[in-house]
Simulated assay, not measured.
Amino acid sequence: MHSTSPVPRLAVTLLHAASESAAVVKAAAFWAAVLLPFGFLWLLFDGSHGLSVPRTLLRLAALHVLCLVVGRDYAAPTDDGD
Rank of each mutant, 00 (worst) to 15 (best):
A22G: 02
R59G: 14
L14W: 02
T56Q: 09
A17T: 12
H2G: 09
H2V: 14
V7H: 07
A11V: 14
S5I: 01
G81E: 04
A11I: 15
G50M: 03
H64V: 08
W42V: 05
A18E: 11
C67P: 08
A22V: 10
V7M: 12
V34M: 09
P54Y: 01
A29I: 05
L51H: 10
H2I: 14
R59D: 11
W42Q: 10
F30Y: 12
S19H: 13
P37K: 02
T78D: 15
G81I: 04
L10T: 10
P37L: 00
S19V: 08
V12S: 14
P6W: 00
E20N: 14
A75Y: 04
A33Y: 06
P54A: 07
W31P: 02
F38H: 10
M1D: 12
P6Y: 07
A23Y: 03
V69S: 06
F40M: 00
P37F: 02
G50L: 00
P77N: 06
T78G: 14
L68C: 08
L15V: 12
D82S: 15
S48V: 06
L68D: 01
A76L: 10
D73H: 12
V69R: 03
A23Q: 11
Y74L: 06
V53W: 07
A28N: 10
L15C: 14
A23K: 05
L43D: 02
V12G: 03
D46E: 13
V24D: 09
L15H: 13
V7G: 02
L60D: 01
H16T: 15
A11Y: 10
L43K: 03
S21T: 14
S21P: 01
P77W: 06
V65C: 09
R55S: 05
R9I: 08
P77M: 07
L58P: 03
R55N: 00
E20C: 13
A27F: 06
A22Y: 04
V7S: 10
D46P: 00
A18D: 11
W31E: 00
V70P: 02
F30A: 02
F38K: 04
K26F: 04
L51T: 06
V69C: 05
D82W: 14
L68N: 01
H16D: 11
S19G: 13
W31I: 01
V70G: 07
A62E: 03
T13Q: 15
S21D: 11
H64K: 04
R9L: 14
A75F: 06
F38R: 10
T4E: 15
P37R: 03
A23M: 09
S19L: 13
H16S: 15
A11G: 01
G47C: 06
L36P: 06
T4V: 14
L44E: 02
L41Q: 05
G47R: 08
L44W: 01
L14H: 06
C67Y: 08
L60C: 04
L15S: 14
L58D: 11
A61Y: 00
K26G: 03
L36T: 07
L15Y: 09
D80N: 15
L43W: 05
G39M: 03
M1E: 12
A27R: 05
A11M: 15
A11C: 13
R55K: 13
D46F: 03
G71K: 01
P6F: 04
V65I: 14
G81Q: 07
V34D: 08
G47T: 00
V7Y: 05
V34L: 10
W31H: 08
S48M: 08
R72Q: 11
V24G: 05
G71W: 00
T4W: 13
F38S: 10
V12F: 13
P54T: 09
R72W: 04
